[in-house]
Nucleic acid binder design. Structure first.
Length: 326
DNA sequence: AAGGTAATAT
DNA sequence: GATATTACCT
C-alpha cells in the first residue's frame, strides 16, 4: 500500500457556495474515518475470488479518478436541487423514507415471457376515436429515463405493489397538499419515488378517496371491511383541508431542510379533524390503535427488461436524482 | 395533457 | 376477492 490519500484534502467544487460546504461537512459527521477506508491500491476482492468467479479485476483508480467522480456527483446533486419548488418538500430523496427502510416496489411474478407481448397482447382496441384527432401521432411510448440503453425498451411495467411505506409516503403527500391540490401528477412528483407513474398514483388515489369516503359514512354500521388493509394501517391523514389554494401569500410550511437523512418529518398543520366521525361537531376523539408500520417487506423494483443484462440491481438506479421526469 | 371513474386484469 | 392497471370520457 503505497499512497495514503486524505479525501478531506480535496477542495469540494472549488467555487461552490459556502452553503453547500456546510452541508457537506454535516454529512461527513459519522462517516468512517480515513483510516478505516480501504486504500485505493487495495483490491476489494481477493485474487482467489476473482479467479474463482471468473471476474475481471477492477481497473486501478487513482486519486484523480476519485476526485472526478466526486465532482460529478456533486454536480449532479446541485443540478437535482435546482428543481426549485419541489425540493422543499423533497427533502427526502427518492427512495428511502423516513424510517430508513428501503422504499420501492415489489413486483409480482415477472415470469411474463415475451410471448404474451407480441401477438396476443393487443387485447383491447380503442374503439371510439371520433373525438378530434384524426391522425394519431406516433408517440414514443415509454420513459427514456433509463440511461441504460439495455433496459429501456420492451417494458411492461411490473405491477406496482403499494407497500405500507409507499402508501405512507403517499398519504403524507396527500395530506400535505390538501384535497384541493392532491392531484396525481403533483403527488407523484412530491413522492419522488423512482419508477412511480402518474397512473399508479391516480389509481391509488382513487382507492384512497373511496376509502376516506367510506370512513366518513359507514362508521356505525361497519367496522372495517377487510379491504382496508393498507389504508387502515397508515397513521392518519389528519387534515383534509386545503393548503395554499393559490390565493394565500404563503404556501405550505417552509420546513427547514435538514440533511440528517433520517427523520425528515412533515410539517402538519394541526391534528384536529379525524376522518372518522361523520357529522362531527362533537369532539369524539377516537384513536384507532393501528400504528404498526413494521411489516416484512422487501422493496424491489425489477427493471422492465433484463434482456442480456446480467444483474441490474436496484442500487444501480438508486442514484438517479430526478426520477419522475418524463 | 391531465384528472376522474368505471371496467378489466392479475 | 382484493388490488392494480387500463379504457375512456371530461
Amino acid at each position: 500500500m503505497g499512497e495514503e490519500v486524505r479525501i478531506t484534502d480535496y477542495d469540494v467544487g472549488g467555487g461552490g457556495g459556502g452553503e453547500d460546504d456546510d452541508q457537506v461537512l454535516e454529512w461527513e459527521v459519522g462517516l468512517p474515518n480515513v483510516d478505516d477506508l480501504t486504500p485505493l491500491s487495495q483490491s476489494l476482492i481477493s485474487a482467489e475470488l476473482l479467479s474463482a468467479f471468473n471476474i475481471s479485476p477492477e481497473p486501478y483508480r487513482s486519486m484523480i479518478d476519485v476526485n472526478r467522480a466526486s465532482h460529478n456527483t456533486l454536480s449532479n446533486m446541485r443540478g437535482a436541487l435546482e428543481n426549485k419548488s419541489l425540493t422543499k418538500f423533497n427533502s427526502f430523496k427518492s427512495f428511502s423514507v423516513d424510517d430508513d427502510k428501503e422504499d420501492a416496489m415489489v413486483v409480482e411474478g415477472e415470469e411474463t415471457a415475451d410471448l404474451t407481448r407480441d401477438g396476443s397482447d393487443m387485447r383491447k382496441l380503442r374503439r371510439v376515436d371520433s373525438s378530434g384527432d384524426g391522425g394519431g401521432a406516433g408517440e414514443e411510448a415509454e420513459s427514456a429515463l433509463l440511461a441504460d440503453d439495455s433496459s429501456a425498451r420492451t417494458s411492461k411495467r411490473p405491477r406496482l405493489v403499494w407497500t405500507p411505506q409507499l402508501h405512507k409516503r403517499f398519504v403524507d403527500v396527500v395530506a400535505h397538499l390538501g384535497v384541493k391540490n392532491a392531484v396525481p401528477k403533483t403527488i407523484m412528483q412530491l413522492m419522488n419515488v423512482e419508477g412511480l407513474t402518474r397512473e399508479n398514483v391516480a389509481s391509488h388515489l382513487q382507492k384512497y378517496r373511496l376509502y376516506l369516503k367510506r370512513m366518513q359514512q359507514g362508521l356505525s354500521t361497519h367496522g372495517s371491511s377487510s379491504s382496508d388493509h393498507i389504508f387502515a394501517s397508515t397513521p392518519i391523514p389528519h387534515n383534509l383541508q386545503e393548503s395554499g389554494g393559490g390565493n394565500n401569500g404563503r404556501r405550505y410550511a417552509p420546513a427547514p431542510v435538514t440533511y440528517h437523512a433520517q427523520m425528515v418529518h412533515m410539517p402538519y398543520p394541526s391534528p384536529q379533524i379525524v376522518p372518522n366521525s361523520a357529522g362531527n361537531g362533537d369532539g369524539g376523539a377516537y384513536h384507532h390503535g393501528f400504528e404498526s408500520n413494521s411489516y416484512p417487506y422487501n422493496m424491489n423494483m425489477q427493471q422492465r427488461d433484463w434482456s442480456g443484462n446480467k444483474f441490474a440491481s436496484v442500487s444501480a438506479y438508486q442514484h438517479r436524482m430526478t426520477p419522475n421526469d418524463k
